[in-house]
Design a protein around this nucleic acid. Structure first.
Lengths: 224, 224
DNA sequence: CTTGACACAGAACAGGCGTTCGGGTATCAT
DNA sequence: ATGATACCCGAACGCCTGTTCTGTGTCAAG
């Protein structure tokens, strides 16, 4: 029978070392030395630290530049704090409902995500629940959003006046992006294009706010 | 009279060291040592490298952790390789010419720049000469570009058919963003909004292409 | 011409740091 | 009991690296 002294994968010691590297890196802007890891994790011998680092490297948790001082870094969690990864959940188009993320945390694949510099994020909208959709079709030109644009949304069912929202009008079977205003007995949906007229939705009509638009990104490719 | 051996600020050597640190960091994921800097920049003595690093630290270009191997990092240009810094050169609006960067390298202040994740850059358009402009006014709605949007441009005087260009029509005293097509005896400037009609510019008219639009970023704020 | 700031070289020092080696001590299967 | 395995210690080795000190040549100012 196999020995089960440690739960086969990462032991407590491994995790502690990983955590220390991350926090040390945040604080000092550079990785710790072997001896510093040892002190922090109550390991009195550098060889033991080295022993664990070897394992962490084999298991893919860290990378090491041998022979180079402090030449180790975390691989998995992308410690670089300047970038924000937003999962891409699909497309948004006029005739289809908006694919919003399921309530539980589904592990999103990094392949299907886009990166945004956090300095570009508006108004500290840095909630971890943002998601992105790719615009399909030219049905949202009145929102100044073109085919192929990427819209970044924050899932919400409520909106404040002036927010740009993604709504599903089930009566009309239509998805649209508009600025949202609640008025006396109706909702006013104002296109982003100031030359275009708003549409009014009676409160009796179904209006499902699916998310708030935070950002639009357009990679300008060749005209087709 | 003052000595003018070096142009008072950062000399050529300083810049070379700064560049080397950035490229080394990108490649090795950790900063270079003093001796590595020396080899790369043709400085045979570590003391001279140290001498320059001291100056770069005093001038605020780098930070150093003394006594610690490779304990230096760039402060200003964000050496992390996943992000791209684009200088912001001003505003673009219909009635004014486009402020293109002066041909010589003018040191841009990081305050007036935006960061873009490198993974967002279209089609390897990662030339170092990109610049950004903030759109002022609602005169470019036919290009699907709204007031407050940020356009990222690549300076050029020529365009291929289908490129989206920023042009200055001196006859009309107008700046505009359009898709560019060269036809028999005229230029066709096609709005991004497919519901709008193109305008035609006779080749006798002055048409100055100032740059190619690479990307448009819109931070969606509250409607005003 | 002298002075002094400046840019640089070279060497030496000392500590930082990764590496390695010989030796321990548990736990578990045979 | 015995060996295998995992875990751990301490010390030594030696390169890596930042630091510092002495010296040299240049150039502008007094």
């Amino acid at each position: 029978m196999m020995m089960v002294r440690k739960s086969k994968g990462l032991g407590e010691r491994h995790q502690k070392i990983l955590d220390f590297i991350a926090s040390y890196q945040r604080e000092h802007k550079h990785p710790p030395s072997i001896r510093e890891i040892g002190e922090s994790c109550d390991i009195s011998s550098t060889s033991v630290v080295n022993y664990y680092l070897d394992q962490l490297e084999k298991s893919g948790n860290i990378e090491r530049d041998r022979k180079i001082s402090r030449g180790l870094r975390l691989t998995v969690p992308t410690p670089l704090g300047d970038i924000f990864r937003v999962p891409m959940y699909g497309v948004i188009q006029a005739g289809e409902p908006i694919p919003i993320p399921s309530s539980d945390f589904n592990a999103f694949t990094p392949e299907d995500s886009i990166e945004v510099a956090i300095s570009l994020m508006p108004t500290k909208e840095k909630g971890k629940d943002l998601f992105a959709l790719k615009v399909q079709g030219e049905s949202m030109i009145d929102a100044m959003v073109n085919d192929g644009d990427i819209v970044i949304l924050k899932p919400t069912q409520e909106a404040r006046n002036g927010d740009m929202v993604a709504v599903w009008l089930s009566d009309r079977n239509e998805t649209t992006l508009k600025f949202f205003f609640k008025e006396k007995d109706k909702y006013r949906l104002q296109p982003a294009n100031p030359t275009m007229q708003p549409i009014y939705i009676d409160k009796s009509e179904a209006l499902e706010i699916k998310g708030k638009v935070v950002m639009v990104i357009r990679k300008v490719e060749r005209y087709n």
